[in-house]
Write a protein that binds this DNA or RNA. Structure first.
Lengths: 228, 228, 228, 228
DNA sequence: TATGAATGAGTGTTCATTCAT
DNA sequence: TATGAATGAACACTCATTCAT
């Protein structure tokens, strides 16, 4: 009912800076830097809101409040709600790419590589907002084909390709018995995706031990090990 | 957006006409029957719209148009949009339940049972609107905890329990080597879920052979077979 | 949420009457009588609803339910909501007229006549729904000029005319000193109207002794009496 | 019904402009001032509409049009229609309070005080929209108990209390003969209220000379005067 | 005649987007 | 550049009225 108090986020920006003119490299933050900060705050806030409510149900009013900016400010950085959403998801997806393409481990075993990947996934995706982004894409993908496309191109196809390479290496080295697995790298990834979905839908009913789940799955692929 | 063509709703069964003089056992359909037909048409139309747009973005105007009824008619059958959505999803989920609890295969092997289950899943879920409902639950679950709860209780927990029984039987009989699989029946189901999601998001980029995918996955669990 | 159970009012009507054909004068109620009953039930129910909620806020659904008839039935008796309202108020006003025009009491004193009138007003108006009708007219009059007109013509002008006659008689007989009162018979009636309004607005804050109020007012007009 | 002409709202006082260079002390009006103007325009328009149509029948569309603002603007100032109505009536009632509690006439006679009060009532209430507000309260009171409460507490009870004090003073001084009048100050006020109601319902049939009416009433209370 | 399901125009309210300051 | 008041199209929901039974 009553207007919620604004966030103070926007007030820690250097105001009385003009006096210290000439020192361009320390704390202050130039105009461009301030703009970047604001933009980042909007992105951050919007991501939270979109994850929590989905695209249509998210109100830019809430995004602005959470970001500590005025509603109009959003439009200085993004053309409209749709653009904000698309750029946002794109931005959030990008960091996922690095981890996927940087894999072929010349030294260790393929199993070790996949274990490392699983651990990394748990730490960087399953337990962070990135996991929610996956769910967000599943939810909004059909209404934002551009995003589904982008996600497929940048993450899915690359990730699966890298996974296939790894599987083939495993087959070659005798680590992996099921040769056909190279045709369906999705099988290797599936439990990880399921774990992410489970977390946001059912974890309150039955908490899932993602780590154990992925270990059992790797055992299935590589055969059981003596010591974990 | 464009005016959708009307439904065929009004052509159904005039079942069990009491022998009222003059009605030659066809056309009319009692008032109750027509009400049921209308309700069914609304459910049908709403399901399509909700799947296509999600809860918030769906307009009851569109649902009404697609169902071939007036907007007000929806409110003769459902209290409000939220109730329509929840009843809808519940209704759509129920038929999934039967298939899950009716598995125990006294005769054949566990592998055969799972193959039958997979084939059934492909035919009844993956290639029908039921698959989209799963995606819808993933999308709207966080905003409709009641639905996530219902889905967990009626489908997920029962399905996993049944799956666990099957796995344990497989372990007992020596068909399944990975004993720990009984702790994570999710692993057995994961590729099927992933296939459903894939269909609605990426199939246009890279069509997925769900049948083959599930066969490879079963091979992983049961070991490769001599003849497919 | 759930449909309220219907009233059973409509079921006490004679159904198996056909057998007793020919006895047209006893209990049964002819078709016309049944229609009149229904109409009366609608009028009754509508009056309650209109008094409680005003014209616009009253729902014909509620009227029908309260009257124990189907919504459509209202339209068999009244053209539309407005007509129902106007006929209703007219009907409710009519009985007020009789009491007003039937006054000049040749025998008793004018004071006695007014006391009788006051007592009657309390019994027949102030403590019954008729009082609420006065408030209803005050409330809806500006939006239903026809009703205000009718009320003025049938009740107000006649009532004031009769009151004037009475006052003049009182003046003539020396009972009433203030001769100018004949020019403003409203003054004589004012406290009675105020009492009615008070009852519905403020009685819960401060109950009003209408009888005493009117007695004091008569004392003001006729001078104090030794014994009441 | 027909499009109403816009308001003159946007032409008010640009009061207390800080000496901002270039602004020659007129036009602009600060943002806060314009907001206040708009709010005032809404209140003004809403009051007119509510008086003319009652709460339920008033359309916020019409209020907006009459106020010369967009419909959404109303919601920047008021939570909803009900709040608008309640705040409105409260606001309109408040100025009535001052006049009521500020009466005790140390010098003149009680009759003079009441004559002044009557004249003031005619000028400030009976011939202005404030009179209509009284009718509005009578009309909507039962549906807005909060308003009836407020009106009773702030206006009725205070007004009657002040009136009682005045009557008692009159009795004490021998101006008023009817001692019991102190128990029913409503009698003193009744004709004034009736006059207000008459104005909006019947004045077109029979114009009422409120001034004369109230004078005759005072004569009734104080006894006839030699010269008016 | 009575019913009540069906209709669809109408209204309160929300929220993405604009724009004067 | 940032603001947030203002806009008005859009949408959920209501209810007077109709009409097939």
């Amino acid at each position: 009912m009553a207007r919620q108090s604004k966030q103070i986020a926007a007030s820690k920006l250097p105001r009385a800076r003009r006096g210290a003119a000439g020192s361009p490299d320390d704390a202050p933050a130039s105009r461009a830097e301030r703009a970047a900060e604001r933009r980042a705050a909007i992105v951050e806030a919007a991501l939270d809101e979109f994850i929590a409510r989905g695209f249509t149900a998210t109100r830019l009013d809430d995004v602005a409040r959470r970001a500590g900016v005025a509603k109009g400010t959003i439009y200085l950085h993004f053309k409209d709600k749709e653009t904000l959403f698309e750029e946002l998801v794109r931005t959030a997806i990008v960091p996922l790419i690095g981890g996927l393409t940087t894999l072929p481990p010349p030294t260790g075993s393929v199993r070790e590589a996949l274990e490392a990947f699983a651990d990394n996934f748990i730490q960087e995706v399953a337990t962070t907002r990135r996991g929610d982004i996956i769910r967000l894409i599943v939810a909004e993908g059909p209404r934002f084909p551009a995003i589904a496309d982008f996600y497929y191109r940048e993450v899915v196809s690359r990730g699966l390709a890298a996974m296939r390479v790894l599987i083939e290496l495993g087959i070659e080295r005798g680590e992996v018995r099921a040769a056909a697995l190279a045709d369906f790298p999705q099988i290797v990834v599936a439990p990880a995706i399921i774990a992410v979905i489970w977390k946001s839908l059912f974890d309150r009913h039955a908490p899932l031990d993602t780590h154990a789940l992925l270990r059992v799955h790797l055992d299935l692929i590589f055969g059981e090990r003596s010591a974990a």
